[in-house]
Nucleic acid binder design. Structure first.
Length: 1098
RNA sequence: GGACGGGUAGCUUAGGUUGGCUGGAGCACCCGGCUGAUAACCGGGAGGUCGCAGGUUCAAAUCCUGCCUCGUCCA
């Protein structure tokens, strides 16, 4: 038994060597910090010594190593015979600077791919760029100040598109640097690019598949439209331009055909009235017919009015609010009574009835409410989404009364034709007034969308538009969605599933310039051709030229963009001239084609495609649910009738420290380089993964990154440094010496077993997408099990000068543990672990295999846990009994312990006791507690449970347990069985004792002090102070000192033996001890238990 | 307005399916200890109406209902 207090200090001889070593590593550092190549020849796996950690230098050095030896390429190709794991990169747009939120998504993409590769899969990772679309155009328009379509066309469409094409690469370098710096391994040298001809051609092919299946059709879509710029706007752009405005609103009397009454309707957009073709009422809304009794009073404002005796119909709820005349209610009825009644058109010539049976009749719509207006909704098919949908449903004529220029079409009304609609409000009211069809005008203040570029009010306008008939494949979409493994599952079932159940036809055309052109040519009479390839286009051009057209050249590499494709004029089967429909595709269509267009399927990448479809894994932010996640599935369903991806990880949003979404417009984006250049990419990535479940929103806390660095990486580094420095010194080579695990001390077998347990759990958590849990557990292992127990307890084992079996066992164990940790961490944080792995094994961790579960000794883990809990209990006992840690106790008793004798030496040191014994007479220190098992008892006793619990609390535990175990315990009529309670052994009162957590083992410490113990405790206090002083004085570790110590009265006697011990520990070559004296001025002094101690170090 | 998700200590959060024993942890704070062991570590303390209100139950952070609130997406 080691009766000395623990002295965690190496012998001087070893320190001298360590110093030499420190010097050596410093030299290495200054010359070439963190040289990370394969630095030891095979078979000579002796680690190099390790310097202080500089995470940025380490990572940057590894980046160049990886680039020199193409470690990524090797990781992929070394598994080329493995089962493929297919990843598809969601293409980012490179026309914005990457932020920390991009790093998060890329971390999860990367870690899964790396993990699968280490498992032996063949994991190719092709990069991709999204290069078309409105955001690109807007960037360019802003830069060149081209704020309208007119301006763009004046600038030149070809020139404009060239600007777009170039602007896409503005931030490519920034993206590349971020990607490389964060170690997202993806092939950016051969990416797919949506603007490339091959990619566009594949998109054309896909559209043709849809066209041939009759899934592609032409229709209208009502969109916010700016006639000044000639553009319609996405909801995002609309949101930029809401303004509060005051406008005239009007109450209009629609005269019924077979009735003297008029129906009153309200609108805030008088310019849509010429387009009126219907009135919508709520079938269940109550309406009334009223008769105007008296002329209007003097307070009448504005135009409008009614004749006495005139009858109008209005929703009952809105009568008081709207009618400004004295009026009598004649009749009350539901809206359904009105449905089908015809009324007189306001502007008889504006819209042609065509074959419509329903035009200018009253229609029912369940969305009609009585919150404002009159309860009757004026319906102009082309100028409102609800209007359009209703019109399509019941067959109203779909004709424009307004042109694309925002002016009324000729033939609408002689006073309106050709005029800008927003300037016609007065004229329209006058026209209505003169026909006695205007009841009232009223100023109306509301938020209305305006063009964010020109500030003009937007018009809701039915634009010609192309659709994919998604409603036709709804059942298939739902079926395929069921086959996708979603993480988290509620995104698939809930958010996405809900979206699919309400799927609408997909409006895929945009009236824009920069994008994949819609490959449909159409003749004036409506004949159409969809072109699915360049070859087909060439054939058609040839045919057209043969029929007399004079088309430009159409070479094999014809640029598939506007305006080039617009210039081809084709000829229909009937000989009619066909022009291309002047649209480009929604850029979501482009990215939705990525699974095949990236390979140029079906033109020359078909084999590649077939081997890489469906995709195994995609991962993007949850905001892609209705974006990319949807379009991938939409395209694969319509084109291949197949699922597109098998697993989809939907990531939570990244919020700033205040919980706001990070976005460019808010300017709250965290720059990833702030962390790359401080804590490093490893800590940044590990932080992101451990901060929460991937699908939960992440409040990005810069402090958290720092904490992760300090805790996880610094701790790991120091464990590694501890091992590598001694291994280097001792020429330890794990490939030369052997040390069977079974022959190693139990501390070693424990850490190995524990790591195997953690590693098995880690793998299982990975499989279940719970990366955060896996990594938190591993972090706990590194910090608590490895660093704070194993390494701390093993420190002295390596200080031994001789090569002992014990030291060898420790070194092998450290080697094994560190290597395995490196492999587990490699997918998440790939830098430091590669550095460590290379130094310990000579091989990159990224070429190593994923650890497989191996031997676990559960029993050993349980016993070690008990030992640690007992050490903890010892500290608690000392606090409770006010007994300093450095003051040794004579005896510690372990009550009820068995099977941990092999750890007594460790435990005695931890507890600072002179001797540790096992107490077999349990009852001397312990009593029992009978704790009710509420689950069992609740089932048995139900409402009588409180009574039973009270009785149990009262009862004497010994007698109670005796009764229960003998089957004669009856409380409140219930017989209690042993399963109904739990018996615990706990410490008796009156001892300095504590029962270790989760056990029946009690630790008792002897609090009695003796002169010998006090002397030893005092010696330890002095040693500690002097050592600290040495450190303050920055003395060389092996420097000798002279020590003078004065022990004031009140101190215990310092026994000669202990004084000698002090002298040797602090390397004092001579010393003076004055027991009872006071130190002179200038000496250092401190108190122990109220007695002063002074000392001088020279 | 609809769908989905969240609300637990000053902050970040675990737990919630399967109701049960004292609601865990980290950061920050206070006290103490330990340290030639790192930006550490250990023990103790303070800090909680588990968003609110009902309900079910012997028992609710957990299940149910309603409401409030925040976020995202869609209208």
């Amino acid at each position: 038994m080691d009766t000395q207090p623990p002295q965690d200090m190496p012998p001087i001889s070893k320190l001298t060597l360590s110093m030499a070593l420190a010097g050596k590593s410093q030299c290495l550092n200054s010359a070439a910090p963190f040289k990370t190549g394969p630095m030891v020849p095979r078979g000579m796996a002796v680690p190099n010594p390790v310097g202080e950690l500089d995470p940025v230098a380490l990572e940057e050095s590894l980046m160049s190593t990886w680039s020199q030896e193409d470690t990524f390429g090797q990781q992929v190709s070394s598994r080329k015979n493995g089962k493929p794991f297919i990843f598809l990169e969601g293409p980012p747009t490179a026309n914005g600077k990457p932020g920390i939120h991009h790093v998060v998504a890329r971390t999860y993409k990367d870690l899964v791919c790396r993990w699968k590769a280490m498992e032996g899969h063949f994991v190719e990772r092709k990069g991709g760029w999204d290069t078309h679309g409105l955001p690109v155009e807007i960037e360019v328009q802003k830069r060149l100040d081209l704020m309208s379509n007119e301006a763009i066309e004046a600038f030149g469409m070809a020139e404009f598109n060239e600007e777009c094409r170039n602007s896409v690469w503005t931030y490519e370098q920034a993206w590349r640097e971020m990607t490389e710096r964060m170690a997202f391994w993806v092939d950016l040298d051969d990416p797919y690019v949506t603007l490339h001809n091959n990619y566009v051609e594949s998109c054309w092919w896909a559209l043709k598949q849809m066209f041939d299946k009759d899934l592609l059709f032409r229709g209208h879509k009502v969109l916010p439209y700016c006639p000044q710029t000639g553009t319609s706007y996405s909801s995002h752009e609309v949101a930029l331009g809401y303004k509060e405005v005051e406008e005239p609103s009007v109450y209009v009397k629609f005269k019924l055909v077979d009735d003297d009454a008029s129906v009153l309707a309200w609108t805030t957009t008088p310019w849509t009235l010429p387009g009126n073709v219907g009135l919508a009422v709520g079938p269940d809304v109550t309406y009334i017919r009223v008769r105007i009794d008296q002329p209007a009073g003097d307070n009448w404002e504005g135009r409008g009015g009614a004749i006495v005796g005139e009858e109008v119909i209005i929703a009952k709820d809105l009568f008081k609010e709207v009618i400004r005349h004295h009026a009598t209610i004649l009749e009350e009825f539901p809206g359904s009574d009105l449905v089908g009644k015809a009324y007189v058109p306001l502007f008889p010539n504006a819209v042609d009835r065509g074959g419509s049976q329903t035009a200018w009749t009253i229609l029912e719509a369940d969305w009609v409410t009585t919150t404002d207006g009159t309860g009757v909704v004026h319906t102009a098919v082309m100028y409102g989404e609800d209007d359009y949908n209703l019109g399509m449903e019941v067959g109203l004529p779909a004709q424009h009364t307004v042109g694309m220029d925002g002016a009324f079409l000729t033939g609408t009304h002689e006073q309106l034709d050709g005029r800008y609609v927003k300037e016609c409000d007065d004229t329209i009211m006058d026209i209505l007034m003169s026909a006695n069809q205007l009841y009232r005008e009223k100023a109306y203040i509301h938020e209305y969308p305006h063009c964010w570029r020109t500030d003009h009010p937007l018009l809701y306008y039915a634009m010609d538009s192309w659709f994919v008939r998604m409603t036709a494949v709804k059942e298939r979409l739902l079926e395929f969605n069921d086959q996708v493994e979603w993480a988290p599952d509620w995104v698939g079932e809930g958010r996405f599933g809900e979206w699919l159940r309400n799927v609408k036809d997909w409006a895929i055309s945009r009236e824009r310039y920069w994008g994949t052109p819609l490959p449909v040519w159409r003749s004036a009479s409506g004949e159409m051709k969809c072109i699915g390839s360049i070859e087909e286009l060439q054939d058609e051009v040839t045919k057209a030229n043969a029929a007399g057209q004079n088309n430009p050249e159409c070479p094999d590499d014809v640029d598939l963009h506007r305006p080039i494709v617009d210039d081809f004029v084709l000829v229909s089967d009937n000989g009619e001239i066909m022009h291309r429909e002047p649209f480009v595709m929604d850029c979501w269509f482009d990215s939705g084609c990525a699974s095949f267009a990236q390979w140029h399927h079906p033109f020359d990448g078909t084999e590649k495609f077939e081997n890489n479809f469906p995709i195994d894994y995609i991962c993007e932010g949850v905001d892609q649910t209705r974006g990319w996640f949807y379009t991938l599935l939409a395209v694969s369903t319509t084109v291949f009738d197949s699922i597109c991806y098998k697993r989809c990880l939907s990531l939570g949003l990244i919020l700033d420290a205040e919980g706001k979404k990070m976005s460019k417009s808010k300017g709250n984006i965290v720059d990833p380089w702030d962390h790359f250049n401080r804590e490093g990419a490893d800590a940044t990535r590990w932080y992101m993964v451990t901060a929460g479940a991937p699908w939960n929103p992440l409040k990005f806390d810069p402090n958290g990154v720092r904490e992760t660095y300090a805790k996880m990486f610094l701790t790991l580094w120091n464990c590694y440094k501890f091992h590598a420095d001694y291994a280097s010194l001792d020429n330890f080579d794990p490939t030369v010496t052997e040390c069977p695990v079974g022959k190693r001390p139990s501390l070693d077998r424990w850490i190995l077993s524990k790591l195997n347990t953690v590693s098995a759990g880690y793998h299982a958590q990975f499989e279940g997408w719970d990366f955060h849990k896996a990594c938190r557990d591993l972090e706990d292992f590194v910090v608590n099990d490895l660093s704070n127990w194993y390494v701390r307890r093993s420190r002295r084992r390596l200080w031994d000068d001789d090569t002992s079996a014990d030291k060898l066992a420790c070194q092998h164990t450290l080697h094994d543990v560190l290597v395995k940790i490196c492999r587990l961490m490699a997918p998440v944080s790939p830098f430091m672990v590669d550095h460590i792995h290379r130094n310990l094994t000579g091989e990159s961790v990224h070429l190593a295999d994923w650890p497989t579960p191996s031997h676990q000794d559960e029993d050993l883990e349980v016993r070690m846990q008990l030992v640690r809990n007992l050490a903890e209990a010892g500290r608690k006992i000392r606090v409770e009994n006010d007994h300093r840690q450095r003051l040794p106790c004579q005896t510690g008793w372990l009550v009820g312990a068995s099977g941990i004798e092999e750890f007594y030496e460790i435990l005695a040191e931890e507890l600072n006791v002179m001797e540790l014994t096992t107490e077999t007479d349990l009852d001397r220190f312990q009593r029992i507690e009978v704790v009710p098992n509420r689950k069992m008892l609740g089932r048995k006793c139900r409402q009588d449970l409180p009574k039973v619990l009270a009785a149990l609390a009262e009862a004497d535990p010994e007698a109670l347990w005796d009764d229960i175990s003998n089957g004669r315990c009856i409380i409140a009529g219930f017989e209690l069985e042993p399963v109904d309670v739990e018996v615990r052994r706990v410490e008796r009162e009156g001892f300095a004792a504590l029962t270790a957590d989760d056990s029946d083992v009690t630790l008792v410490l002897d609090m009695a002090t003796t002169p010998e113990l006090l002397s030893k405790g005092l010696a330890r206090e002095i040693i500690r102070r002097v050592q600290q002083k040495r450190k303050e004085l920055d003395l060389a570790v092996d420097a000798s000192i002279s020590l003078s110590v004065w022990l004031e009265l009140g101190n215990p006697e310092l026994i000669a033996e202990d004084w000698d011990h002090v002298m040797s520990e602090v390397r004092a070559k001579d010393g003076v001890l004055d027991q009872g004296g006071e130190g002179p001025d200038g000496s250092d002094s401190f108190d122990v238990d109220g007695a002063g101690i002074s000392f001088i170090v020279n």
